[in-house]
Design a protein around this nucleic acid. Structure first.
Length: 533
RNA sequence: CUCCCCAUAGCUCAAUGGAUAGAGCGUCAGCCUUCUAAGCUGAACAUGUAGGUUCGAUUCCUACUGGGGAGACCA
């Protein structure tokens, strides 16, 4: 139990004893007004907040456990309760700050990137990629069981795969980038064979050939993308889910359709089958089977999600690009219609706007101003790239400026954090040479302001993880990492570790722990923690 | 026309309805015989407009302005 949890519990008890009420107050970490602040008296609505706060404070002070961990309590401002931690509290929190989180029950499925296999990943994919990776890291660290999943839109029936096939056979130009052209050339023998055998089997439709050719090419593109994601981006997936292989041809579509039909949730119009999503919160009804009898993307997505929920996750998280935001309502409608058990959370990653000088351009493949993630990676390096994307909230529009990104690769705060880590390594190397790093010792004797600031920053770590696992605001981690590195840098300037007499052992213990947390946070972000820079 | 997201310092971004709105970059002024100066210290600079809810609004609600996205039997 951390001191924040302890404070919450004590406050709850006291408030109930005094007012017979349970309220949703908050204990927040503070810097200016003590170490923690509670707004309980302000939202209690039981008279003058200042007087209420004072009554609560007096009652709290009657507990010996409270007095052991809280050195000072103060009523301030409009009625806040401010608390200062005792050294006993710091010692305790310091001791457990890198403990393992208790395993939480149930499994979370997190699907992200899922780029269409029609070309290389561009910078828009970068956001979802790094965010998804970091989020699953945090969730796992916080004790959740997480499965990472990547959906491959490679169905031979899908219009885009057919378009890709058309291009592959030299009959179209959609998705035709230099990269795709090169892929086509490399696969020309197989494509030709495919085309020849199709001519023999005359009962097959031309669009079937496009589907086959597109599927073939998509497989090759996907191979490249997978390699890039795993090797260059350092992102691992537990499951690569192939639409063609695992969804199509397995009667999932028929079953899903039948379920809708049974509940009278579909109707036919203009030769197509429509789903009554408008009755379940969507703006209009949607087609699930086209008039040519092929299945729409929407039905495919429903079937896919039905499959996810069938696998029994407590929570299914999707990270989609902003261009998919229109799908959220219909997906939620489908969930209600089919009564899927479990939570579904769809996170939308806002678009990246390309900035060139003073003008903002729409970032799109068609405008020809696409920037590939691979090129950007080459330009700025993986650590700066990850930080660049992870530093910003998912739902803010990003103004992407290539010059800025290049510049930030040289002056990225990520190096500041890594630098702090490397400095600690450097000190510890010298310690080892002398007598070997000490094991855990009491740090309660450390009294220098820079030491206290560092310890206080460190003990926040479990809260940061817990909060991030709850609200998914991954950018909190970069802020924390930077703040921790800053606290260390100030400490480093003001306090000497080596040859510092009776405090040396405690200080070594402090920096060992600091290094461990820095490394852990960087690890959650997927950034390296170097020993030398 | 309808729906969604966004608007905070010169620039890129923070701030579960809280107290004196924070960082980085840039600008200006300082600090290296001492565990890595990729560092530290200081200065200047900000909540688009108008209302509303609240003890308290950058945050919630309404309207407006500006920017981006979506509105296919594409995915």
């Amino acid at each position: 139990m951390t001191t924040r949890d302890f404070l919450e519990t004590e406050l709850k008890k006291v408030i109930f004893a005094l007012y017979k009420k349970e309220i949703d107050f908050e204990v927040t970490a503070e810097e200016r007004f003590g170490d923690y602040a509670a707004n309980a008296a302000l939202i209690l609505r039981a008279g003058n907040p200042k007087e209420v706060a004072q009554k609560i404070a007096d009652k709290l002070r009657m507990s010996s456990a409270f007095n052991k961990y809280i050195e000072k309590t103060e009523v301030a401002g409009p009625g806040f309760l401010n608390f200062w931690l005792s050294s006993a509290a710091l010692e305790r929190d310091f001791g457990i700050l890198d403990r393992k989180f208790a395993k939480k029950s149930g499994k979370i499925n997190l699907e992200f990137i899922s780029a269409n296999p029609t070309g290389k990943l561009h910078i828009g994919h970068g956001r979802g990629a790094f965010y998804g990776d970091a989020l699953s890291n945090v969730l796992a660290y916080a004790g959740h069981s997480v499965e990472r999943e990547y959906f491959i839109n490679n169905s031979k029936e899908s219009a885009q795969i057919k378009e890709l096939g058309k291009t592959a056979l030299g009959e179209g130009t959609k998705y035709l980038t230099d990269y795709v052209a090169a892929k086509c050339a490399a696969q020309s023998a197989k494509l030709k064979k495919l085309s020849t055998s199709w001519r023999i089997k005359t009962h097959k439709l031309k669009t079937d050939l496009y589907g086959e050719a597109g599927f073939l090419l998509a497989g090759e593109i996907q191979k490249d993308n997978k390699k890039f994601i795993e090797r260059d981006l350092g992102i691992k997936f537990g499951r690569w889910y192939s639409e063609e292989g695992e969804l199509r041809g397995k009667k999932v579509f028929e079953k899903t359709q039948a379920a809708f039909k049974k509940e009278k949730l579909v109707y036919e119009k203009d030769g197509a089958v429509w789903l009554k999503t408008a009755e379940f919160g969507d703006d209009e009804d949607r087609v699930i089977v086209r008039s040519d009898k092929s299945y729409s993307y929407f039905l495919s997505d429903i079937a896919y999600h039905a499959d996810k929920f069938r696998r029994g996750y407590k929570q299914v998280i999707d990270i989609w690009g902003a261009d998919h935001h229109g799908h959220v309502k219909r997906m939620e409608a489908a969930k209600r219609m089919l009564g899927w058990k479990g939570e579904m959370k769809i996170l939308i990653s806002q678009l990246v706007t390309l900035k060139e000088g003073e003008t903002r351009k729409k970032f799109s493949k068609r405008a020809g101003n696409v920037i590939y993630l691979a090129d950007l990676l080459k330009e700025v390096g993986i650590d700066a790239l990850r930080w660049f994307f992870l530093d910003k909230a998912l739902n803010t529009h990003m103004d992407f400026d290539l010059e800025l990104a290049k510049k930030q690769s040289a002056e990225n705060p990520v190096y500041y954090v890594q630098y702090a880590h490397a400095r600690i390594s450097s000190i510890l190397k010298k310690v080892k040479r002398k007598k070997g790093a000490k094991k855990q010792v009491a740090i309660a004797g450390l009294r220098h302001p820079a030491e206290l600031a560092l310890i206080k920053k460190l003990v926040r770590f479990p809260e940061v993880v817990e909060d991030t696992a709850t609200d998914h605001q991954v950018h909190r981690l970069t802020s924390y990492a930077y703040a921790l590195a800053y606290a260390f840098s100030v400490f480093y300037r003001d306090v000497r570790v080596l040859d510092s007499g009776e405090n040396e052992a405690a200080r070594i213990c402090l920096i060992v722990k600091t290094q461990k947390i820095l490394k852990t946070v960087l690890g959650l972000l997927g950034v390296r923690a170097p020993d030398e820079m």
